[in-house]
Design a binder for these strands. Structure first.
Lengths: 262, 262
DNA sequence: TAACATTCATTGTTAGACAATGAATGTACT
DNA sequence: AGTACATTCATTGTCTAACAATGAATGTTA
């Protein structure tokens, strides 16, 4: 099976950089250039598409924004096809979810539900597939969070580390990515009530999840996680109620009336 | 709660456009500009960061690649904060997964497992939450796929429509996005065996899922979907076995030895 | 009132230049 | 021979200065 050649299509004079980016993206998807391989130089691309180098550069910027290519200076430099790292993809996804939340397209309930079902699955899989390293990671995250003098931010970091370790132990990069994205989108949605949590209770729940994973007991892991999530849910409901906030709108963030989006 | 002002930070002379993009992204995340609002003009940004307009433009291109902003020409034009549409985010995610697959970072099993657990959840939720419109969408996708003269591509499109309608009926945009991404990444991973499927069997399985959703029976919906997925799994196993391909590597696509990625 | 023309701020694109970089190559010294 | 250092040079990064295209607002005319 040989690789297809790159066949540029003449541009219609509208959004040149976008069209070039699209053609390059499709070419990469078709395997014209494989990860690690070098694309033509900016000048070559500019000549090929009959545009200026600046326009060709902007097309490459569009691709580099999603981590599809990366550039390097120097004599042996150039633009290389690269495989986006999970963190980058997850960050972008989390970003999008936060914007959706602020625009009212998703609710805290949506995010929490997604989190619950995804993490429940991951906990079950983790109990079946965890390696000794995974157990170590999970346990050290639990232990590190036991210091009662810890700041909220630090504590949240360890909480994230705990849940990240579980999703990694599930040994499925796709689910891990999904979990990571949901967690990364949570800062915008849970700032209201984090300091209302009882750390000791959370800690106990984390320990129960950990133990089930160590015991290789998927059903127990799922149950322990569901218990944890329902506690978080309870605290959030109480917090919202005490704030006398309606359950539906949820956007505590300032929202200016949005300009109609075309 | 008032919005924070925009406070640009002086750049270190390295990757100026990237730094500007990062600062703008963080400012948007902090609510300096809300969706629909206009950013400063390119010239203003250039002046603010003490760079040329070209560099400021490249920063904006980095943001527009993920749909975070969009630009418009004309007297009242400019660059506006926008909410990325789900399709765009899902496409990017699917793209990343395809690259991961080609780079060997994910396997077909990973993608299929993610698809199975996500869609099982969605099917259950859909059975609880489906509206009459959802039922109509799902049914018409099933009926449309009954034409035996249909081409494989068309048939696959209807298959996608069927599964998309289910995930939409689950009424959770986050899970819907996840499903969409997994489906969009599948073309690269299932080209080997699609024509080995028995369309009538697939159709019957789709009908069973549909009926369970109409009956508002989550458990039945989950079971019917699991049955469907396990059939697909079976066919794929057979296909791989008959091709005498090992079960693990799975990359049927041409792979050149990748240049070490820094 | 409606249709049309003009204005003009803003993004889109161009051309040519110079700066920064970093791998490869050459050179001198031990 | 080997090692430290200097040079080369293709390539990306940034700059400058301009012009083109656009499209909402405004003005003008029928």
């Amino acid at each position: 099976m040989s690789r297809p050649p790159f066949q540029p299509v003449a541009l219609v004079r509208r959004d040149a950089s976008g069209q070039i980016a699209r053609q390059l993206r499709e070419a990469i998807a078709a395997g014209v250039w494989v990860p690690g391989e070098r694309l033509p130089t900016e000048q070559d691309l500019a000549d090929t598409f009959e545009v200026s180098r600046a326009t060709a550069r902007e097309a490459l910027k569009l691709l580099s924004a999603t981590g599809l290519v990366r550039s390097a200076r120097g004599a042996q430099g150039g633009t290389f096809v690269s495989v986006p790292v999970a963190e980058q993809v997850a960050t972008q996804l989390g970003e999008a979810i936060q914007l959706w939340y602020r625009a009212g397209n998703v609710t805290v309930q949506n995010v929490d539900e997604a989190r619950e079902v995804l993490e429940t699955i991951c906990a079950g899989l983790a109990a079946s597939r965890r390696t000794p390293e995974d157990i170590g990671d999970i346990q050290s995250a639990v232990e590190a969070a036991q210091d009662p003098a810890m700041s909220i931010d630090e504590w949240l970091d360890w909480d994230l580390a705990f849940h990240t370790a579980i999703s990694r132990a599930a040994k499925n990069p796709i689910l891990e990515l999904a979990m990571m994205s949901v967690h990364l989108s949570r800062p915008a949605t849970n700032t209201v009530f984090v300091d209302l949590l009882d750390r000791q209770q959370v800690l106990d729940q984390h320990s129960a999840i950990t133990q089930a994973i160590i015991d290789a007991d998927p059903a127990a892991a799922r149950a322990a996680l569901k218990n944890h999530v329902s506690y978080l849910d309870l605290v959030r409901r109480d917090a919202l109620q005490s704030l006398e906030v309606d359950d539906v709108p949820l956007s505590q963030l300032p929202l200016k009336p949005a300009r109609p989006q075309q």
